[in-house]
Design a protein around this nucleic acid. Structure first.
Lengths: 295, 295
DNA sequence: TTTTGCCATTGCATTTCCGCACGGAAACCG
DNA sequence: CGGTTTCCGTGCGGAAATGCAATGGCAAAA
């Protein structure tokens, strides 16, 4: 049963009883309607209508088709309404994927967004592997580094994370303030676990700090921060983390080369949807102060 | 939501995940599939798929469509099977319309037909008004008189009903054998109630027998027969009725001008169906002896 | 890393489909 | 009873949908 349009045509004829009426409803010429009916009947090998001078009367087969197609028409109308509506409402799942270590910054914002749009179910993914927007695994991705070049993605700048080297007051009191990068001998560092990390400051650290001086490594930035706070050693922390309580001393101010540019990435096909737009707007509105600060 | 074919296309893409696969299943070119999807999405204003190099992945809207269209496809398949099958099976309603007075001949045949095809529901209509085949009011009509000329009807000769004048033995004993049409004075007749009846013998009677000699009229041929049997008067009876028990005397043998030609009429659109064909065959097979007899 | 295969996309040629107009027939209406 | 309306049926020219083939991109295999 291919060619669903012919069924639709036959449905209108069965419903209205005339070819002309069906043609008007369908917005086509009545000749087209006749041809559709003829083709459909030929393919089925059964007459759907009896032709007479006042119109078409459905045979038993035609009445059967009428019932089925009526239901189909209803279904499609509802489907259309749902789909069209869904484009303009903020509901359903919203999947956000990001690099690790931004939870502290993002989760409160996500919570606020969810409060504003209660119909949204949020999924916040910070997996090791890169979630792929093109397969629909996420609606919005936050990526770091150089601007992603995927062709089907819409990329826009998000934040520039400034990092500085911090140490705990306790550590400074004990080991003195290091003169970076000139005289760091005898000092201890806390760093990222990922040896291949492409974070700018991680690269700097690999090049500048001898490996044996990095006495604590972790993939979790909160663990890194905790380690610095505990006086294990100095380490890079995002400047946005500084405001959190804790007795931290800035050992070296932020350098431009340590900055990590963040990008908001969405798939082209989803970027225009109201849901994604609403989220992006909310996200930008609630990170404004950070952007001002770091620019 | 017009253009159901595009929904069908989108359905296959959602089901198979690739444009190429859908194109193969649908028996069209890739390009056509892409254009269908693009058009549908444009009309809905919502993306149904996310495009990537390995194929198309359905968005939430696309998955919704998938579910609905899946059900539709099932429905249409079943519909098609029903319709195609119905063309080749003998079931459902079968409406036969006929002139009055053939019940005695036809009903036993109808009963036999129904016994042979138990899935058939018979309707046997002998209404005053002419049921119109072209509006689908009946599958088969039995008409009398000159061959019907309706353009969309399939007409074939059925039987030739021979009529003769009968009287009861009692009547003949009392009034003597009349010499028809020469000396009928003093005789009594039983006739049809319908003054305008176009039955040949009714016409003959109107012209030949003075109205006051027709002492019993009825529209029901069985009543007429009963009246003749009861000795009310002479009357026309079909020769096929003669075999029935009863003490009848043929007052005048059948004349050609009294014959009533019967026609089997079907509407073109229904004539080819197995159901109608089966009925016509059964009808002919079981009236063969009558045909032989009257020719 | 190179190769191979699969897949979407796009411009161009073609065919199919559609709209138009005319004809004809039946019913409706004063 | 004749004019009028409302249908359906069909040949023909044009337009829209389709098929074709070339292109490019990505990923898995070699």
């Amino acid at each position: 049963m291919d060619n669903w349009d012919e069924i639709r045509t036959a449905y209108q004829v069965a419903r209205l009883g005339t070819v002309s009426g069906a043609a008007e409803v369908l917005g086509v010429h009545h000749a087209t309607v006749i041809r559709h009916i003829d083709a459909l009947e030929k393919r089925l090998g059964v007459k759907l209508f009896q032709r007479h001078t006042r119109g078409y009367t459905a045979t038993e087969a035609g009445q059967d088709l009428l019932r089925v197609a009526q239901a189909t028409d209803d279904q499609f109308s509802q489907l259309s309404a749902r789909i069209k509506g869904r484009g303009n409402e903020v509901s359903g799942e919203l999947v956000v994927t990001t690099i690790g270590g931004l939870s502290q910054l993002l989760v409160p914002i996500l919570a606020g967004f969810q409060a504003e749009y209660p119909d949204v179910q949020l999924r916040y993914l910070t997996s090791m592997r890169l979630f792929r927007l093109e397969y629909g695994e996420a609606h919005v991705a936050i990526r770091a580094g150089s601007p992603p070049q995927q062709p089907d993605n819409v990329v826009q700048p998000f934040l520039t994370l400034k990092s500085a080297i911090y140490g705990s007051r306790e550590y400074i009191d004990r080991y003195g303030m290091p003169d970076i990068p000139n005289r760091m001998a005898g000092h201890r560092f806390v760093g990222l676990d990922d040896q291949a990390s492409r974070a700018p400051f991680a690269q700097w650290m690999r090049e500048t700090v001898p490996a044996h001086q990095v006495v604590f490594r972790s993939g979790d930035t909160r663990a890194v921060r905790q380690a610095v706070l505990s006086g294990v050693g100095m380490g890079f922390l995002g400047t946005y983390e500084r405001t959190d309580g804790g007795d931290l001393v800035e050992v070296h101010p932020p350098l431009e080369e340590w900055e990590s540019r963040l990008w908001l990435v969405t798939h082209m096909d989803l970027h225009r949807t109201t849901k994604v737009q609403a989220f992006l707007k909310y996200l930008k509105d609630h990170t404004e102060h950070l952007r001002d600060e770091v620019v």
